[in-house]
Design a protein around this nucleic acid. Structure first.
Lengths: 349, 349
DNA sequence: GTTGGGCATTGACACGTTTCAATCAGAGTG
DNA sequence: CACTCTGATTGAAACGTGTCAATGCCCAAC
């Protein structure tokens, strides 16, 4: 191992490797990219030179020449949200499988930052992207398509097939499942604790919930009360406890369906602080099935989304879009699944 | 807005912009990189052309020419861990501040994947990297330095200044604080629930805990019992309950200090399942102060790490290493802070 | 012995950008 | 008017790679 330890040496390029192996640069390039086209003997000689000189390829050079880089972007709404972390893992695993590098970019829920990140992907001539759009304005994505970078929308079911692929979970079905569960336990009135109704996902969950009541022959307008918070985080859930309990003990709801687990956990904490017990006094249902849903006491009944699979499928779709020439946009819809734990109980008068 | 919507057009380059503005490519480059060197009138003309043609710069070209890209890597142990998500946010915010793009890469706790990612950074000629090394073998990082990419180590205090910068939190101090707190509550025996002692961080926390007992004139060997699990996740915490309670009710520990919050939360769940109450029967202390520590019931007493600040400071250090020529490696050490919540109570015989 | 075909390799160019010495225009000075 | 000085602009040369037509070689077939 006589690696020269001069800390800043000029990096060796494909040409130097070629010289060292007594071969032309083109051949070295072939060894790297289409090894089958080069004779065994020379291939070995080149590989030896590569190892000897500790050559590392310069991806700027290659993607400049080829017009495309071989990394894909993963545009996520919020790195802090455990839901996305799991999705990211799925995307990464699948990408590694097909030899693509993933760069994770965070929109921090803001439009501006999403735009900046999309632009960054265009500048890097990314091969493709898996994107969770920050709102239903898809103009950034359409622009990205025009720049020649294709994408797959994640967790947004309302993207039509003529603009792009999408992978999502059926939110209506999830709301329906939660509603049926509560109705099955005898609850005839439910509070829906949610975020801004501008978010398509939560709107659908709400519709699903209402559909469950209709299905049971109950009037959704009378049965479902909505409490809306500006954000979907635990703090907001805790703060919402006042609004949820408004109207005094007589009016107190006996079941709350929360638009996500974070709200639900916050709410449960707030309820505990008020001396109310879950599920004896109030049943709580969440959405997402974060790891922590199983760790609180009582365990949170919630609608599970196949997060990891969501990421994998998105990446798989992107991969096919990149490789198959006659690709048609697809729309994949997963079905969520209710996980019953201790936070819900039968209605008691 | 007469943007041609031909879906795949050849992207416009700096030369086409130049032609369109009646100017040389070099001038366009100057407008983009050193606007002060170009006359007001031409600058406006070029900017108009850029807007008109919807030009987006090709970063492959520029980083090929300049030899360095302007993105930095963030090598994280595990995207799934909320601790890292928070750190990532800090890194991102600070990077955005200095105009650098962050690419987040996941080592998934494995050596092999770390190596792959480090190599990727080298291939991309990344300007720098913020790295959480997967173990104490720093050879990958030294190799990266030789390739001309500088880095800052995160959350690993044992990196000497002659190899690189580092930012970390004083784990010894954290263990000490937890120990003092429990001793102050009258506990004279504590179980330390931990991960593999190969991990430097948890080793230090252990030492700190022992130091607290020594300080109080108690024999650490007698006072501290260690239960070691292979991983630091909630599942392992729940599974550990058997080992923690081994020895029957008489021997049952009255206080457990966990090497991180995830273990602690898992343990609390396991204890609940056994009908033991926290803190009445057993006090529990965690480490990290994840968001969820405040959401469980009772709230988890834990040692808080300045996660976001850790990320910011690492990025700040990297930035200075990249820009200041006479840079000397630095070692920044944050002090953790004990957050007392409901999971700890005074010893009762 | 000549021709043709297949395979391995070569050489040169193009990708889009930055950089830097060289040029040019114009203003100020003697 | 000749000169210099300053500041703005140009032109050409790299950076490291991939591609592709062209070349060279060897063997088989006639």
């Amino acid at each position: 191992m006589s690696t020269r330890s001069r800390s800043a040496r000029r990096p060796v390029g494909i040409t130097e490797v070629a010289r060292h192996a007594g071969v032309s640069p083109g051949t070295v390039s072939n060894v790297l990219n289409r090894p089958e086209r080069v004779a065994e003997a020379t291939r070995l000689r080149v590989e030896a030179a590569i190892a000897e000189l500790d050559y590392v390829r310069n991806s700027s050079g290659s993607s400049l020449r080829s017009g495309r880089s071989e990394s894909v972007g993963l545009l996520v709404l919020d790195v802090t949200n455990p839901f996305f972390a799991e999705v990211a893992r799925g995307v990464e695993d699948e990408a590694a499988h097909s030899g693509l590098a993933v760069v994770l970019l965070n929109s921090a829920e803001t439009r501006q930052r999403q735009r900046r990140n999309v632009r960054l992907l265009a500048e890097q001539r990314a091969a493709g992207a898996v994107v969770m759009p920050v709102d239903d304005d898809l103009s950034d994505l359409l622009w990205l398509s025009r720049q020649g970078t294709s994408w797959v929308a994640l967790d947004r079911g309302d993207v039509s097939e003529d603009v792009g692929c999408s992978v999502s979970v059926d939110n209506h079905e999830g709301g329906l499942a939660a509603g049926r569960h509560l109705i099955g336990l005898g609850h005839e009135r439910v509070t829906f604790l949610t975020g801004p109704s501008a978010i398509e996902q939560v709107r659908r969950r709400h519709q699903g919930l209402r559909a469950a009541f209709e299905e049971a022959g109950l009037d959704p307008d009378a049965a479902v009360r909505v409490v809306e918070q500006p954000l979907l985080n635990p703090g907001q859930g805790e703060r919402a406890v006042d609004a949820v309990l408004a109207g005094g003990p007589k009016q107190r709801p006996r079941a709350v369906f929360c638009a996500n687990d974070q709200l639900a956990l916050g709410l449960m904490k707030g309820l505990g602080r008020r001396g109310l017990r879950v599920p004896e006094d109030i049943s709580v249902v969440g959405y997402d099935n974060l790891d922590f849903a199983d760790l609180v006491h009582p365990g949170l009944t919630t609608v599970a989304q196949p997060k990891y699979e969501l990421g994998r499928e998105a990446m798989r779709l992107l991969h096919s879009e990149l490789n198959e020439s006659g690709h048609l946009h697809e729309r994949v819809l997963f079905t969520p699944e209710l996980v019953v734990r201790g936070s819900t109980a039968a209605y008691r008068s």
